[in-house]
């Protein structure tokens, strides 16, 4: 299992999406999110996109006011995860059309559906944007 969690956080450090692939009690989650976000927010653009925290390696990427953070274990390929984050953003962009923080907040469940199509149990399952979005678009048509 590579990916342990996917987090979306804004510049103020507020969580906008949190998907964990291992069980953590809620108070530990909030503590972990707080610590990681504090570590990532102080870093500059020139510094590398990897931060080690506890036993996680956090790979993060910033898009405008949103930080995408992915926590992985030690065996994961950091550069590939960086590419995965970009793929996730492109997919969200295609679905929402220039995605912004508010889109993600209001359509939280849809973002979850998208992430779910891409990652199952911490493994990347699909990287084709059309394949990822098809079930969600179908569901919308039906509704």
């Amino acid at each position: 299992m590579g990916i342990r969690f996917v987090l979306l956080v804004n510049k103020q450090g507020q969580t906008r999406l949190a998907q964990y692939y291992e069980h953590l009690p809620i108070d530990q989650r909030t503590a972990l999110e707080g610590e990681i976000v504090r570590k990532c927010l102080i870093r500059t653009d020139q510094q590398c996109s990897f931060v080690e925290h506890r036993n996680y390696k956090v790979i993060y990427r910033r898009y405008a006011s949103l930080f995408f953070l992915v926590g992985v274990d030690n065996e994961e390929n950091e550069l590939a995860i960086l590419e995965f984050i970009h793929l996730l953003v492109e997919t969200l962009d295609r679905y929402f059309g220039n995605v912004c923080e508010l889109d993600i907040m209001i359509h939280l469940e849809k973002v979850h559906f998208i992430v779910e199509e891409m990652v199952v149990n911490g493994c990347i399952v699909e990287t084709n944007k059309s394949n990822i979005l098809m079930p969600i678009q179908l569901m919308e048509k039906a509704a």
Binding site: T15, R16, A18, I26, R29, T30, E33, L108, E109, H112
Partner: peptide, 13 residues
């Protein structure tokens, strides 16, 4: 349920 997910994400039981 959508609301609960949002509340959960904010760290409430």
């Amino acid at each position: 349920l959508a609301k609960l997910m949002f509340i959960h994400m904010l760290g409430y039981p």
